[in-house]
Amino acid sequence: MSEKTKAPHDYQLSQLRVLESEAVHIIREIAAEMERPCLLFSGGKDSAVMLHVAAKAFAPARIPFPVMHIDTGHNFPEVLEFRDAEVARFGVQLIIASVPEAIERGFVREEPNGSRNRIQTPVLLEACEKHKFTALFGGARRDEERARAKERIFSFRDEFGQWDPKNQRPELWSLYNGRIHAGESIRVFPLSNWTELDIWHYIAEENVALPPIYYAHEREVFDRDGMLMANNEFCRPREGETTFTATVRYRTVGDATLTAAVRSDARDVQAIIDEVGATRQTERGATRGDDRATEAAMEDRKKEGYF
């Protein structure tokens, strides 16, 4: 076929490849313009995809910034194992900001309900200050939650790490403004335009490794407020809650005291894609105690410096 006969639609990327290119552009932009970036890595599927995309953005060189895990101490062991394996595989430096350690030295205090969701924010901010990070990559997506839907890809944070939804920098074309004063920082969300289903299609196409808890397995669980909680050292049934064994998987991975499992037989990526495509519940609505607290739970936490 001669070049002249090629039509514009021959030069078209699939939507997933457009999203991937956009994410790579954003990640490279930060690496080029910001002094000390860092990638937040929880071991969840979104951060796993983000790390995978970051590696592709700089190949054959290594990822030119460290990754940080905000360790609440309430971890699924499979996730910690996965974290360490990924860090070794990509040859990146791992920084751990530990909530239990911060509790021990009196920097933060354990909340009455035992959740460390809120107190991880000061620990995150302290670690940023200590390491002088000017930009933090997060795997948040705009389809997750109503506050996220309005956040910029480059999200400016003041010296307290706070997000001000009424005072965001306009973001046009693919031009991003990461200029800051000392002490201020930028949170960067390269996967902003991805949906949960996009993440899973990408995991399938790219063979992205994930912690095994994302796939269906047998687990001892109990029912709490309509959510299936795992019976483990962080989360024991209260009176009236009885445990039973069920085939479940996790749709999100967060603090083990708050993150619920869903009943599922999806043991591989394709089965999960079929399940997610047919599901009638949002991932946060179905599995996250932290977002159920109030209607504006996420908005409030972001204003305090959370992702």
């Binding site: 109503r146 506050a147 839907a149 309005k150 939804p165 902003s192 209607e295 908005e299």
Partner: peptide
């Protein structure tokens, strides 16, 4: 956002 619901306005571009 709650800030918008309280004021009955839309503040920003939403995606």
């Amino acid at each position: 956002l709650r800030a918008e619901r309280e004021q009955g306005i839309t503040i920003d571009v939403a995606y």
